[in-house]
Structures are given as structure tokens and as C-alpha cells.
Design a protein around this nucleic acid. Structure first.
Lengths: 217, 217
DNA sequence: CAATACATACCGACAGTCGGTATTATAAGG
DNA sequence: CCTTATAATACCGACTGTCGGTATGTATTG
């Protein structure tokens, strides 16, 4: 294939096809050759011209997904019409409404066989989402009186951990009833420290999303 | 090397040396050749006679470590001198006192670069430790009146998740102060649902273990 | 003409295979 | 109980295909 006048398009193509394959087969079992075969004539040289390693492609793919989320998160955090508590609710809700959700969750389906995605998500949660979004929102809630806690940082960590890991239907398989119980207990647990995040609406939406995921399987 | 009359010894040797190497270098960066080089004359054929793949070796190594823990857990769960609450405390304590602790934690040190170990531990926690040990112990506590909750299964899940992931110093790096705050909040959180697991003694021991780990790094 | 965007031939390392050999267990015959 | 034929096991090591990655060449753009 002859050289492209607009190399960003080539980069974009590589990232898109790589993502598809990572989702479909997992990171480890997707070979560079697999990616090449989906590039419509492009060769190994093209890939290694734009990316320095397979790992580099993986990181770029994750970064791209992350960026889409960040736009969404930024808008949420900086929304002047909501108080801290309402924003925190929105963040919780984002677990199943954020734009790249389907992609991320399709990836996670490969979690047991290919834990790279999970690790990346855990890492990003602790390094980025918690400190830059959840915690500031909680602090805002403390300032405007809509959230009462002495542990904003720790509350952020616990929320992220339980939502991403424990309640994540890809990690621990659950029946509808078990998921309902998880959400009920999550509500009780937060209620115990005076935070009533999980109202009927969020619970219902969570269950709807859960059923949706179950049907994808 | 001539053939061993007692092949279990060969298997044991392979597992021991593999574990050492997995801990030292991580799973991915340990090659079969690396293992062979530490076997004192044994060859590739020997390995593939006893194990069907590298993955198979990994699973056997994990299983072996798991077995050691199970002996410890069984003893704890079936101890007639303690009530449910005391047993649960013991289980929490076991996060830093169980026998294969050093090995497991040395492994986890490779977590970011080699997420296989973390995934294995998460999986085992949800599939084995929570349902077979934590939850029964909580139910025992409900029966003997030492623990009050309507959600034994969910409480088990949350405990395991927060201890293994959020409080695990290998996953989210923390300063001494941050770890102290985590433990404080963990206490408050459990206190909110009427469970006072984290007494002064456990908190202190946890911090001691945390400092110990920090010095290993 | 210089920098970029590719193509292609090639490399070493890797996990896993396979035909073969040496040692042991089994058991039948004396 | 001892020998001996036979089968099963324990192991060897050269070999294979695939992998991620590199080196070098070539055509296109500015």
C-alpha cells in the first residue's frame, strides 16, 4: 500500500482494528500479524513506524477510551447546576452510562483469561478517576453541606473499589437476585455512614444495566 | 540426569523452582528455559512430561500455595473455642499472618507488570475463601449472636474486596498516614453497620505489617 | 533534498512437540 | 525365590512454528 498523505488516519485505523481484536480475542491472543491482516494491505513496518511495541498499542487504545470518559467526567464535575451530592450520584451512574461503556465491558469479558484490561482499569481508577473526580466532588459536597464525611479520599477509594470490582458482573458472576442483594447491602453500608447514594432510581437503572449485560453473554 | 525413582520429587522440584522464579521475575518473564536452568540437569522433556504447559505449572504453583492456606483456614473455621465474631477477626488477621503470606505478597509485588497473580487471587477469594470460609463464619456469628447482619454473603464479599484490593499496599501505594486513614475509615464503615471488627489490636498489627512490607521494597 | 510513511526480509526467543533412550515396575515361567 | 520378557514410566534434546521486534530499503511528500 502506498503511503498515506494523512498519517493520523493510519494511526486511527491501527487503533480501531486493534481495539476490535483485543475485545474479540483478548490482548495476549491477538498477534501483530492478526492486526496486520485487518489493516487492508498495510504492513508490519507501518505498525512499528507509528507504535514502538504491542504494549504501546495497548496503552494507546486504553488512553483513547480513557479520553472519551474524561470529557464526560469533566463536564460532570464542572457542572455548576448540581451540588456535590448530585454530582457524586451522577458519577456512580456513569458506571453504566459513560460513552465507552460497551467497549470497556466487552473487553472485561476477557478478564479471567486476559487480566491486562482489569489491571489497567484498577490502576486508572486509583490514579485518575478517584483523585481527580470522585474525591473533588465529595469535597465539594462537604463544602456545600450535601455530603457529610471526614474521609473524602477514603470514601472515594471504597466507592470505586466496590463498584469496579465487587459489583462488576464480569468479575463475580451473579444471578439477578444476588445482584439485587449486593446493591441492597451497598445501600445499607453507605447508609450506615450517613450517605444515601443508592436511591430507588439508581438501583433500578443498575439492575436494568445488569440484565442488559446478562443478555449480551 | 538419570531418571528419578520417586517422580513426585521431580514434580516438587519443578514447582519449587518455578515459584521462586515467578516471584523473582514474574510469570511472563520467566521462560521454560529459565526453569530448566534451575533444575540441576533436568531437561525440557522432564517438565513437559509432568506438566502439559507453562500455564499448567502456574496453576499447580497457585494450587499448592492455596492448599497451605486452606489447612490454616480449616483449622480457624472449625475451632470450637471461638464464636463467629472472634473467628471473623482471625480471618481478617490472616491477611498478614497466614503461612504462605510472604510468597503471595512477594508475587503481588509483580502485580502491575504481571497481573496474573492478582487475577488468580481475586478469583480464589470470590470462589473459595468468601463462600467456604468468611460467609460460614459470619453465619455462625449470626447464629451465636456475636454478629448482627442481614447480608452474610454480601458482607463477606465486601470484606474480601476491600482488604484484598483497596487496603492491599501493593495495589494502591500509600504513605503511612494514608494507610492509617484507610484503616480508620474501614473501621468507621463497618461500625456504621454495627460491626466492630477493627479494634486497636488489629489496627496496630496491620500497620506493623504495612511498615514491614514498605521496608521490603 | 530531507523527512516521513511505509514495505520486506530477517532475527532471536519463545512455548511446545516428538522420536528416541534409559530406567523401573510387573508378572510369568522355571 | 530367582530369572527374564514385557510394558510402562521418566527423561533427553533436537526440532518446529509463531511470536514480537529490527534493519534496511524505497517511494512519496513538503
Amino acid at each position: 500500500m502506498s503511503r498515506n498523505k494523512y498519517p493520523e488516519e493510519t494511526v486511527k485505523l491501527i487503533l480501531e482494528e486493534s481495539l476490535k481484536l483485543f475485545i474479540e480475542k483478548g490482548y495476549e491472543s491477538t498477534s501483530i500479524q492478526d492486526i496486520i491482516n485487518h489493516l487492508g494491505g498495510l504492513s508490519k513496518g507501518a505498525i512499528y513506524h507509528h507504535f514502538k511495541s504491542k504494549e504501546d498499542i495497548f496503552e494507546a487504545v486504553c488512553h483513547k477510551i480513557g479520553e472519551e470518559n474524561i470529557v464526560y467526567y469533566d463536564k460532570m464535575r464542572d457542572d455548576p447546576t448540581k451540588n456535590g451530592f448530585e454530582k457524586l450520584k451522577e458519577m456512580i451512574r456513569s458506571a453504566y452510562t459513560n460513552p465507552s461503556n460497551d467497549a470497556v465491558f466487552a473487553m472485561q469479558d476477557k478478564i479471567t483469561s486476559d487480566p491486562k484490561f482489569l489491571m489497567n482499569q484498577i490502576h486508572e481508577s486509583y490514579e485518575l478517576v478517584a483523585p481527580r473526580y470522585i474525591e473533588p466532588i465529595i469535597r465539594e459536597g462537604m463544602a456545600d453541606g450535601s455530603i457529610q464525611t471526614d474521609y473524602p479520599k477514603e470514601l472515594a477509594g471504597v466507592l470505586i473499589t466496590l463498584l469496579n470490582i465487587w459489583i462488576n458482573p464480569m468479575i463475580e458472576q451473579s444471578t439477578t437476585l444476588q445482584m439485587q442483594q449486593k446493591l441492597n447491602f451497598f445501600r445499607v453500608l453507605l447508609g450506615g455512614i450517613g450517605i444515601d447514594l443508592m436511591d430507588e432510581e439508581i438501583m433500578e437503572q443498575y439492575m436494568k444495566y445488569f440484565e442488559h449485560y446478562n443478555q449480551l453473554k
